[in-house]
């Protein structure tokens, strides 16, 4: 009985150590748990698979490095898919750290032969929050007269014939907060929009897919892993999924421990009270 009661009082540092172990071990020795593809990822993939080589998409970076572990794997998976299919990417940033994050992700493709200004460009960050977003969604060159690297945007070949979002084939945003800003400011423009949001923001973003304001939704590491699988390019996100599964199992076990202890304590208290009466 005492052992069962103590299950609810395990030092949280024990839980933390166990959590570190169950997250680290599968990273070193993957188990290979099968990953099923969710409806949302399929929908987003179907939308992006309609793009033809030479089409241009806008990728909006709206996350901080803090949210990167959950959102960045989606950006990596999408970049790999789009660049492999020779789709052109224009990056813009609602967030001050966005241009630096985008540069880091674009660098490997530049090194492997993609040409800046023709295959991709990084327009940088515009201060002003949603007002800035509304402005650059409607007129990229006017809002960003110069790109992040200091080039005059009107001279970039990738931007020839493109004024705003409706002149591109898709708008993909990556964010570690809510999707609402994009739905409000880009939603009424004639461009399919795909949201890549941090996992905890998923319930808030899902109504926008139902309403048709978003054409697809990718949420956190799980969606990144699913996207890697549907595009036949398994990478870091797939490897991290085993760790996530084991982590969830461990937390569930501890929740069960806590409840066993709670019910044992309660039954003992009740028995004690009946004894007194």
């Amino acid at each position: 009985m005492d052992v069962l009661m103590k299950l609810g009082d395990i030092d949280k540092r024990v839980l933390y150590v166990l959590l570190v172990l169950v997250l680290l071990i599968p990273m070193v020795r993957p188990i290979g748990i099968r990953i099923s593809i969710s409806h949302w990822t399929t929908k987003a993939y179907e939308q992006l698979s309609r793009l033809e080589p030479g089409d241009t998409v806008i990728c909006d970076f709206g996350y901080n490095v803090d949210g990167a572990p959950d959102v960045e794997p989606i950006a990596k998976a999408i970049f790999r898919d789009l660049f492999d299919r020779n789709i052109k990417i224009i990056t813009v940033s609602l967030n001050a750290q966005g241009p630096m994050i985008a540069e880091k992700l674009l660098l490997p493709y530049e090194e492997s032969g993609k040409v800046y200004g023709t295959d991709f460009c990084n327009l940088g960050f515009m201060a002003g929050g949603e007002t800035a977003l509304a402005a650059y969604a409607r007129d990229l060159k006017r809002t960003f007269p110069r790109d992040w690297r200091g080039n005059t945007t009107s001279t970039l070949p990738i931007l020839q014939g493109i004024t705003g979002a409706p002149d591109t084939k898709a708008w993909i945003f990556f964010t570690d907060s809510s999707a609402e800003a994009w739905v409000r400011q880009v939603g009424d423009l004639d461009v399919p929009m795909i949201g890549a949001v941090i996992t905890v923001a998923a319930p808030q973003a899902e109504p926008f897919v139902h309403s048709g304001q978003l054409s697809g939704l990718l949420t956190g590491l799980r969606s990144a892993a699913e996207y890697e699988i549907v595009t036949n390019r398994p990478g870091g996100a797939v490897a991290a999924m085993d760790a996530q599964s084991l982590g969830h199992i461990l937390i569930t076990i501890f929740i069960v421990f806590g409840n066993i202890s709670y019910f044992v304590k309660r039954s003992k208290e009740l028995a004690g009270r009946e004894g007194v009466q």
Partner: peptide
Amino acid sequence: TPCGSAFYAMACFHLASAAYRAFRA
């Protein structure tokens, strides 16, 4: 970048201990 990622990861540990502490039927 690494400090930010470390803090984000810390939420996972806090989430685990919060679930263990507060999730009682």
